[in-house]
């Protein structure tokens, strides 16, 4: 049973949204990067999980992350699956967020020649919903010009 309705731009999602990957993606539609924090041992999770893998608690709170971090590795994809073919070549990075969690994603508006491990990146949001299942909003990375 859904405990909320997802209406982009109109209603905000309730803070008691279920601790699911779907909720994570739907929060992106409100331009929010949300992780979950275990109420018992305070471990952060991204993506959210229904059970804490450190202490097995099932009690969590949502935590809004700043979305800033440091690039720890990257690649430039020249040959992709069909779905991403029109975007090739595109840059993929893994970013260690300041909260300590890693997030993988596409880095937009960046010349591959300028990219380097350790650079400061920022999460941004693409709230247009792609046609492919599961039809949720997306996040991507871009240069964090203020921190760089």
């Amino acid at each position: 049973m859904r405990r909320y309705t997802f209406l982009r731009g109109d209603n905000n999602m309730l803070e008691d949204s279920p601790f699911t990957i779907e909720s994570f993606y739907k929060f992106l539609g409100e331009r929010k990067l949300m992780a979950t924090k275990c109420c018992k041992c305070e471990t952060l999770f991204l993506p959210p999980r229904p059970m804490c893998t450190k202490c097995l608690s099932t009690n969590f709170n949502w935590v809004k992350l700043e979305g800033k971090g440091e690039l720890i590795s990257y690649t430039v994809i020249h040959f992709s699956t069909e779905q991403f073919q029109s975007k090739t070549p595109y840059i993929i990075g893994i970013v260690k967020l300041n909260a300590g969690l890693n997030l993988p994603g596409i880095i937009r508006d960046m010349n591959p020649k300028q990219i380097r491990v350790g650079m400061n990146l920022l999460v941004d949001f693409d709230t247009s919903i792609p046609l492919q299942w599961p039809q949720w909003p997306r996040y991507f990375f871009k240069l964090d010009t203020l921190s760089s």
Binding site: I77, P104, V117
Partner: peptide, 20 residues
């Protein structure tokens, strides 16, 4: 939900290991 959906392929995953 995080790797495939961001266009990461298998060569891409091992490339991320290689860069690191």
């Amino acid at each position: 939900p995080f790797e495939q959906w961001n266009g990461i392929t298998f060569p891409g995953l091992y490339a991320l290991m290689a860069t690191a």
